[in-house]
Design a protein around this nucleic acid. Structure first.
Lengths: 227, 227
DNA sequence: TGCAAGCATTTTGTATACAGTATAAAAAAT
DNA sequence: ATTTTTTATACTGTATACAAAATGCTTGCA
């Protein structure tokens, strides 16, 4: 996964000056490494070793770890350093419950707040996703799927909501990415998405919330065997 | 914790059980300072000065600032250090919308998940709060009010939910604390609480969610003049 | 052979020092 | 007088060095 794709809200990527502070770069770098599985859950992080590996000294690395600890991606054990956080099945289920609730809220808000152009953009993403589905391209499908969900949340025009959603999303990304669903389930997910977009375009808040509810509940069914 | 009792002989742990790392202590210290208004919104934080003031060197202080930045309490401007984050009225309203949604979810979950003892404990807190209300003790009332809301979220037995709720809660605490409501509004809030507790005891999820919804919507009405 | 205690190594926690950058103030030129 | 440039100062960013704590290993003893 490229690190330059759309960043979650709260992170400002200024194109003009790429000179973000070093610890900032390390944060995004490590976040990617954790999500992509380069750093595995439960793995202890040795500051010297990792710092050497990244070509930075311990100080900014430590600062980055504190940041990620607050995000909940790593755990800080006093006097024993940082460990990549491991999530239990219940943790994941709990997170998905919260994510579901927040996307339902986002959907309701989006039906009121969103501009027509914003909704149209979601439709574009959806159509592209369907094309990738028909072509059987799972990775591309997965990415667009994520973008659509993040996009609906963005339409709600509620920064804290987007932030918290992104926070939890980043934690389950790793697990969700693994989830390989069978053809029939995959088809079901696409059909659900179709109804979601339709409800959004109709600005039918209750229907949209309902569709997101069932879609994300099914999402848990799809991944829970993997966790 | 109980683990200190069974320490092996010859290995004596110091009385200060809170053997938290220094940056950890600084985090809680600064968080309190921000919430209580010792550090005011928009105020720039000079690391040397604040470090001197707290009696710590810059390194752990900087780590603490990174942590708080991830929490959203301070903002990191590259090459210009940390600033206490300032929230607009819309920010606060958006946060309260999300908090409301999360507490509604928590209420629904609590009706299923909570133990009878847990619910009884909320009742105890509520009764104590009412006593403080009748005595006109605003500060004590405020604290118990917070505890009740946090307690209901805790009953949901969903760690990520409690975490993100606490995250947003800590941001609006500062504002909420300021909000001095008139006598009649105060009475209304207490009455709403009474209905909330009743619904919880009856484990009536929908009624509870409804009551929380109106209560927290009114909460925004109560503070929005202040923001 | 098993266990315990002490020593050594490794790793984290904190402080300090140095380098780079932004801001502000002062001086010079238009 | 105003604007621009230069210079100085102060603060942040990063690295390195030192101290404390924990883990692991070895050695001694029963």
């Amino acid at each position: 996964m490229a690190s330059d794709v759309i960043e979650p809200a709260g992170r400002r990527t200024v194109a003009t000056i790429s000179r973000q502070s070093l610890h900032g770069e390390i944060v995004t770098r490590l976040r990617d490494m954790i999500i992509e599985g380069d750093l595995q859950p439960g793995e202890r992080i040795y500051e010297n070793q990792l710092g050497e590996e990244l070509g930075v000294s311990r100080t900014p690395l430590r600062e980055a770890l504190k940041f990620l600890a607050s995000e909940g991606l790593v755990e800080l054990v006093p006097s024993r350093g940082a460990v990549v956080k491991r999530f239990s099945a219940k943790d994941v289920e709990d997170m998905l419950i919260v994510i579901r609730s927040m996307e339902m809220l986002a959907g309701r808000l989006a039906c009121v707040q969103a501009s027509d152009e914003g909704i149209a953009q979601i439709r574009v993403l959806h159509d592209a996703m369907v094309r990738h589905y028909k072509a059987g391209e799972r990775l591309e499908y997965y990415k667009l799927n994520q973008q659509i969900h993040t996009g609906i949340v963005a339409l709600a025009d509620n920064a804290p909501l987007a932030e918290v959603h992104g926070l939890l999303q980043s934690r389950v990304k790793r697990i969700r990415f693994i989830g390989h669903e069978g053809a029939e389930r995959w088809a079901g997910a696409v059909a659900e998405h179709e109804r979601i977009i339709a409800a959004l375009e109709a600005r039918d808040a209750e229907t949209l919330a309902q569709e997101l509810d069932t879609h994300l509940a099914n999402g848990w069914e799809r991944v829970k065997s993997v966790v």
